[in-house]
Simulated scan of single mutants.
Amino acid sequence: MEYTHLGRTGLTVSRLCLGTMNFGPHTEEADAHRIMDVAHDRGINFFDTANAYGRDGEGNLKGRTEEIIGRWFAQGGGRRERTVLATKAYAAMGEWPNEGKLSALAVRRAVEASLRRLNTDHIDLYQMHHIDRDTPWEEIWQAMEVLVAQGKIIYVGSSNFAGWHVAQAQEAARSRHFLGLVSEQSLYNLLDRTVELEVVPALQHYGLGLLPWSPLRSGLLGGALRKEREGTRVRAAQAHADELLTTHRDRIQAYEDLADELGVAPGELALAWLLGRPAVTAPIIGPRTQEHLDSAVRALDVELDRKTLDRLDDLFPGHRPAPEDYAW
């Protein structure tokens, strides 16, 4: 396993982050525990979850994924001590006021509930799952500072922020002499490269690590056409994935052909590309099985030359930083 620092911090994390969103809805608890054990065996020390993960069949938010992780920690054996644990807050966990978003009260309640479900006394990376346009940064940072002082969280991250949100957050933190954000989770893959316009430059400027989510775009970059032919494709988690596959079928076929030419699995190619992108600390992989996990780890050994990178850019055009991308 390869390791790096999370953004500008001294925190050492694996170059792959284990995403746990499938735990509960798609992966049974025993299998989830096995996957986490194998992740440790493979050297992955960075796990990501959220209080909203684990929806039941009717879409209710139960926090089941955090509970599954908490019961895994309870088995001991150094599981918690060896894990850099990241979770998130923002989503409404109930219908009553202050059960979601990022007011000081909501953040306090959310972190206490996550700590109980996760069976731990602290969260290593506490992330805002979405921007809260109704709560001022002074209130958010005061709440986070209290949690840091209490030892309940260590670092703060964001998810789904625009570049100007990152700048807002960091300048407000700077005025309080607070570390502020250390990482940002964004949708980033060969098909979705919008963050290259302004988010990535903002992260580079402020020294934040980028944690790309959906690196295989709901499986579309993981050999979707091959699996379709073989009859082994699993229904994608996102409803519009089939529509995207129809729209981009020719490009995805050319992409899978390129992977065959290189002798690697399509998913390994997608992850290898992300691992070489600016500001990227660790793509968030969401394996449903041990086989998916092992394939992701193999991506660390894939080296892409300039010719291959140019061919990927031809298939999936990216962006230059703004404003050069659209102006002189």
Score class of each variant (00 low, 15 high):
A92T: 10
R71N: 09
Y188N: 04
R8A: 10
S186P: 15
V280G: 04
D48S: 13
A74H: 15
A173I: 08
A299R: 00
P212K: 02
R108C: 13
D124P: 15
V234I: 15
E196F: 02
L258W: 01
G207T: 11
T194E: 08
T308H: 01
P321G: 06
Q290I: 15
H129W: 02
I140Q: 03
N51S: 12
N45K: 03
E58H: 10
I252P: 01
A52Y: 01
R117Q: 07
I284D: 02
L304C: 07
H5Y: 12
A104D: 02
H5L: 10
A89Q: 03
H319F: 07
A110W: 00
D313M: 02
A106Y: 01
E324H: 03
A272M: 00
R8P: 14
G78L: 09
D294Y: 10
N60R: 09
D56Q: 06
L181P: 15
A91Q: 13
H122D: 13
R8V: 06
T20L: 06
R229P: 14
T120S: 10
V199C: 05
H26Q: 11
L187D: 14
R80P: 14
G54F: 00
T232P: 15
H5C: 12
P287Y: 00
L181S: 06
F46P: 15
E67Y: 11
I131D: 08
G10H: 09
P323M: 04
H205G: 08
T120C: 09
Q253D: 05
F73T: 12
S214G: 07
I35E: 02
A173P: 05
K88V: 03
E196V: 10
E198T: 15
W213D: 04
H319L: 03
I252A: 02
P212C: 10
E256P: 15
E28Y: 05
G222P: 15
Q127P: 15
G151Q: 03
T308V: 09
G276L: 01
L300A: 07
I284E: 01
T281H: 03
L6T: 14
D48H: 09
Q127E: 06
G151A: 06
K152H: 12
Q290D: 08
L118T: 06
P136F: 01
N160H: 04
V234M: 13
P215M: 05
R71G: 05
V199G: 04
R288G: 09
L262K: 00
H248L: 13
M1V: 12
F161R: 06
I35T: 04
R249W: 00
Q290C: 07
